[in-house]
């Protein structure tokens, strides 16, 4: 039984209450700033002074820090290591070993790139943690995103755990018929056929029946769609979005100015 089908953590916080589009704007603003700002330390400052505090404001610091520790920082660390070692740039050599050459410039480049990756993944993580997927999609649909597109995204998010559950049932049925799926690698590979067959057939039936079911509920109706959820879009949201866009523009203008 999967009650939890997305990253979303249901809590009440100022970040949860923001309009989804504001949060989406925030995500893209942070990414653009970290890549586009002329100032080297921008992504690092964003991580420490904006993203980390935001996770506390959104009351999802525990979930965020866990994801960061398990996924985001290890990935960024790996990227940092690879770029430091293999980036063939710079003259200020710190040390040299075999074919490897570590230069000051490469390390600096890797350090900012790793930070940019952290900004990118972290801001998306915060968005997903504090925004209900239906809310995000209905807000975007209301603003003109085609509803078919929104449907594909949402149903895909839900279908992954459903496919897992279905695969579990099929494995259970085949194990009940004496199929050994646990002892050796060869047996596991051999067990794929009796698993994949029913999964594929089931999916074909499912696609057809689901198409009928949503069609029967007026999915392609020519009426303008409405939304059950009322998604607040406050004055503060609008100002915040404006400010974010202005700051991105400023960053790009100053970059052009300086170059």
């Amino acid at each position: 039984m999967h009650e939890r089908l997305s990253f979303y953590v249901h809590r009440d916080s100022p970040l949860h209450r923001l309009n989804p589009l504001t949060k989406l704007t925030m995500v893209f603003a942070f990414i653009l700033l970290s890549f586009g700002s002329p100032w080297y330390w921008t992504p690092h400052i964003l991580i420490v002074l904006v993203i980390l505090p935001l996770s506390f404001i959104g009351r999802v610091q525990r979930e965020y820090l866990l994801t960061a520790a398990r996924l985001i920082f290890p990935a960024a660390g790996f990227l940092f290591l690879m770029q430091s070692l293999f980036q063939p740039i710079g003259q200020t050599v710190w040390f040299r070993w075999w074919v490897l050459e570590v230069t000051h410039e490469a390390v600096a480049f890797a350090f900012v790139n790793a930070a940019r990756i952290i900004v990118m993944v972290s801001s998306f993580t915060l968005l997903l943690l504090t925004t209900h997927p239906s809310e995000l999609m209905s807000d975007l649909t209301r603003r003109g995103l085609p509803s078919q597109f929104a449907y594909v995204i949402i149903s895909t998010l839900q279908i992954i755990p459903q496919m897992q559950a279905k695969a579990q049932t099929i494995i259970a049925a085949q194990r009940s018929r004496g199929l050994d799926t646990q002892s050796s690698f060869v047996k596991r590979v051999g067990a794929l056929v009796p698993l994949v067959g029913p999964l594929v057939f089931g999916s074909l039936v499912e696609v057809e029946e689901r198409a009928i079911a949503i069609e029967a509920r007026g999915f392609t109706s020519s009426h303008a769609k409405t939304s059950l959820r009322e998604i607040p879009d406050s004055r503060f949201d609008q100002i915040l979005r404006g400010a974010l866009i202005v700051s991105v523009l400023l960053a790009f203008v100053s970059r052009l100015w300086l170059s």
Binding site: K166, T169, I170, A172, A173, Q174, R175, S176, R177, G178, L179, D180, T181, Q182, V193, P194, L195, V196, G197, P198, F201, G202, V205
Partner: peptide, 23 residues
């Protein structure tokens, strides 16, 4: 005993045949 061994003693017909037929 694993399920695949218990299958010698207990046969289990699942509700939905489509979740097991593949041959």
């Amino acid at each position: 005993h694993p399920v695949s061994k218990l299958a010698v003693r207990v046969g289990y017909v699942f509700q939905n045949p489509d979740e097991q037929l593949f041959s």
